[in-house]
Amino acid sequence: MKAAEEPTPDLGQTLQWLRKELAEMQVQDQKLLLTLRHLHGVLEELRAETAHWEDASCSGGESPVRARAGSEGRGHPALPSRRLAQLLQGVDSRRSSLP
């Protein structure tokens, strides 16, 4: 049984709220996709650098430190670690609100 104080939500208002929530979720999904793509690029760059270091140390050529120093300017622009931590912790995510 419903208490007399609880208003019955209007169907139109409920549908409007659902549309708004879905739109916000789509925006959030797009942000997560961009973050995922960036992280994928960073991981690929790190894999390539690691392979380069391993090749350099096995072949007796330049030291891994020199190999890394030579590759500093290449690749994707790094996301600041503070911003990355915020994204991974969900600081930007919104709270769910019921109508």
Rank of each mutant, 00 (worst) to 15 (best):
E6A: 09
L18I: 13
Q13P: 00
T14S: 11
L88M: 11
E44P: 00
D29S: 11
E49P: 00
G73S: 13
E49L: 13
D92G: 15
E5V: 10
E21S: 14
L84H: 02
S57T: 09
L87E: 10
R68K: 02
S97Q: 15
H76N: 12
A48P: 00
E6Q: 10
L33A: 15
E72W: 02
L34A: 15
P64G: 07
E62H: 08
V27M: 06
E24F: 06
R47W: 01
R94P: 01
A56P: 05
E5T: 15
L11R: 13
R47E: 07
R95I: 05
L18N: 06
P64N: 06
G90Y: 05
E5Y: 12
G75I: 06
Q30W: 01
A51E: 04
E49D: 14
T14R: 12
L15F: 12
E5W: 15
G90H: 04
L11Y: 08
L79G: 01
E5A: 15
A69Q: 15
E49K: 08
L43S: 11
V42E: 07
Q86S: 10
R74Y: 05
G60P: 04
L33T: 11
Q28Y: 01
E21R: 15
D29F: 12
D92S: 09
S93W: 01
T8W: 01
E5D: 13
H40L: 12
T8D: 08
G41S: 11
W17R: 13
E24V: 02
L39N: 09
